[in-house]
Amino acid sequence: MHQTTLNDIALKAGVSAATVSYALNGHAGVSSQTRQRIQRLAEEMHYVPHLSAQILAKRTTPIICGLVDSFTGIFNNELLDAVQDEFQATGYSLLAVNRIVPELIGSDLFRGLIVFDFNVSPEARKQIDMIGTPTIYLTHPHSSQTSSVAMDNAAAITLAYNEINQSVHRRLCILTGRSSSLNNRERLATAQRLYQRDHPGADAAAITYDGQFEFSVAEQLSSTLLKEYDAFLCFNDDMALGIYKGAFDQHLIVGQDISITGFDNSLLGRTAVPGLTTIGFDIRQWARQIVQQFQNLADAPTIPPATALIAPQLIVRGSIRYGAGGGARG
């Protein structure tokens, strides 16, 4: 299939290729009427400007680097797709990579950096910050010089905790993720604070287990946990579904014999039987906020870095058995 070139548009418009280039790149010396006609033809002929030509013409790059820790997670991919769409709508392109390459990220190829890696190490953060390019993190800031657009973990866990607290099942188990995860640490601090508020003198650590954010780990733990606990506050959907599997193996029915909440609103959680009550976030809102904050940072780098928190949403399905007068929403 033939790709439209500047020469094709020039031939159709009856002007030179240089005039077409000037018109499409905003240069002076082209009348408003000619510019509009060329822009209309470019749209009708589905012209896609060559990226290297754009960079040379505008003397800046429209490419943003998206640093991810994994391309496998449903949540990661949904957010990555949304951010790509939002950047494209504003004239940028997002290129995702899953390795930190200082020579690449620090080159003139990228206009800035979006760090999708929720578990980025302190050493990696220092390496990124030394590059000096406009950067947005998707976790809470590690310094007053860091911009971020992060999920509100404290509000999210409060929603999940209060919901499962309405269950008839009172023997609560908290299933956490990796200790290296900042998101996990924020969720854990909130969950334990709420539990100790409701159970003065109790040791919240005694009901807390490390599920590593992994389905397989939670499934292995379930063989013993299901003998002691009947309510599970899980810090992601994968671990919640690991408990589902363990319950099935022990002939227990989720939503009747045990109650479970998750976190992430994953596709598997939506299609589980019964559906998993979980925490979700408006991915599109998150993506728009990321792009807006990046534009603010890129346009006015002297403005102090900002932190934006994305509000959580409680998605109620059938994985909780509610007590009398509580949570008839399930």
Score class of each variant (00 low, 15 high):
S147T: 10
P122G: 01
Q166A: 03
G246S: 00
L172D: 01
Q293P: 02
T61W: 12
L172N: 01
L80C: 10
V83S: 14
A124R: 08
V15N: 08
T302I: 13
D81A: 13
S181W: 05
S93H: 15
R59M: 04
A96C: 12
I258H: 01
L226G: 00
S21A: 14
D152K: 08
P134Q: 05
L226W: 00
L182A: 11
S16F: 09
A154V: 15
P301L: 07
G327I: 06
P304L: 15
L182K: 09
Y229N: 02
A150I: 08
I63T: 14
Y161C: 02
T176N: 05
R125S: 02
I253V: 14
G318Y: 03
L94A: 14
A23Y: 12
Q293G: 04
Y195R: 04
F281W: 12
T90M: 15
G132T: 04
W286G: 02
H142M: 11
I74D: 13
T5D: 06
T72P: 12
G269N: 02
G73M: 11
R187M: 13
A96D: 05
V168I: 08
Y137K: 14
Y209S: 00
I105N: 07
K227I: 00
D299H: 14
N153M: 10
A231W: 09
F75K: 11
V217H: 02
L267Q: 06
V120C: 02
F215P: 04
N76M: 11
R99S: 14
S167I: 01
Q166E: 05
A205D: 13
R35N: 13
N183K: 08
A204D: 08
